[in-house]
């Protein structure tokens, strides 16, 4: 039943762009909170076991979206596999890291904060904040703030993934497709058509209801 509900919901929930905007906004806010040069959200693709750039704010924005790398590499990978938030501060000292970062993203951060995005018992991805402001010394309160903010980002990412799954279930002329299309059409229809449609739906509901 959950697929059916998700499918109908997808018909009225709006398009991919809406969810992208939510993630983008999350990355922008993370960047603003820490006065950072950039922030990125990675999604874990469990099919290929890779992390994928899903949203980027600041340096490297847009060109990175969709790039992917193995799920346990880089500081983002550590955060994911250890389930621990991590902060590293002088990355430029590590030429191997710098080269890899430069080749893949065109931007070499000096400092990096990475926190896993966890919902219930699932890890969905990683949030990174690059080159935060150095006006204030870093504190464990910043670390806690990062963790709290990551929880919010994880919820957004979870919603996005659920909607994507629902849309996948609706692809083509599957038997759930008609339901979602009807839901979307009802939403878009004029007042009179909508009322008639709802009347028909109620009739259908009575028809399908089990005999009591």
């Amino acid at each position: 039943m959950s697929d059916l509900q998700a499918a109908v919901a997808a018909g009225v929930l709006g398009a991919e762009e809406g969810h992208r905007a939510l993630l983008q906004s999350t990355a922008e806010v993370a960047r603003a909170i820490f006065k950072a040069r950039a922030s990125s959200i990675f999604l874990l693709d469990t099919e290929t076991d890779e992390l994928v750039f899903e949203a980027v704010a600041g340096e490297g924005a847009q060109t990175l979206i969709g790039q992917r790398f193995p799920s346990s590499t880089g500081v983002a990978g550590w955060a994911l596999v250890t389930r621990q938030p991590l902060v590293v501060d002088d990355l430029t000292a590590d030429t191997r890291f710098s080269q890899e970062a430069a080749e893949s993203t065109g931007y070499v951060p000096k400092a990096l904060m990475a926190v896993p995005l966890l919902v219930e018992d699932r890890a969905l991805g990683v949030l990174e904040v690059l080159d935060r402001s150095s006006e204030q010394p870093f504190s464990l309160a910043d670390m806690n703030l990062l963790g709290l903010f990551a929880s919010q980002a994880a919820v957004a990412l979870d919603l996005l993934q659920r909607a994507r799954r629902a849309r996948a279930a609706l692809a083509g002329e599957g038997e759930l497709g008609a339901l979602a299309r009807v839901a979307a059409q009802l939403e878009a229809a004029g007042e009179e058509a909508r009322l008639s449609g709802l009347e028909l739906l109620r009739a259908l509901e009575r028809l399908l209801a089990p005999e009591s």
Partner: peptide
């Protein structure tokens, strides 16, 4: 201690890191 520690890092160097890890 978990804040801004100079930890051993790949290639024989160190890296300043923070975390319960």
């Amino acid at each position: 201690r978990g804040l801004e520690i100079d930890v051993a890092w790949l290639g024989g160097g160190t890296l300043r890191s923070t975390g319960n890890s």
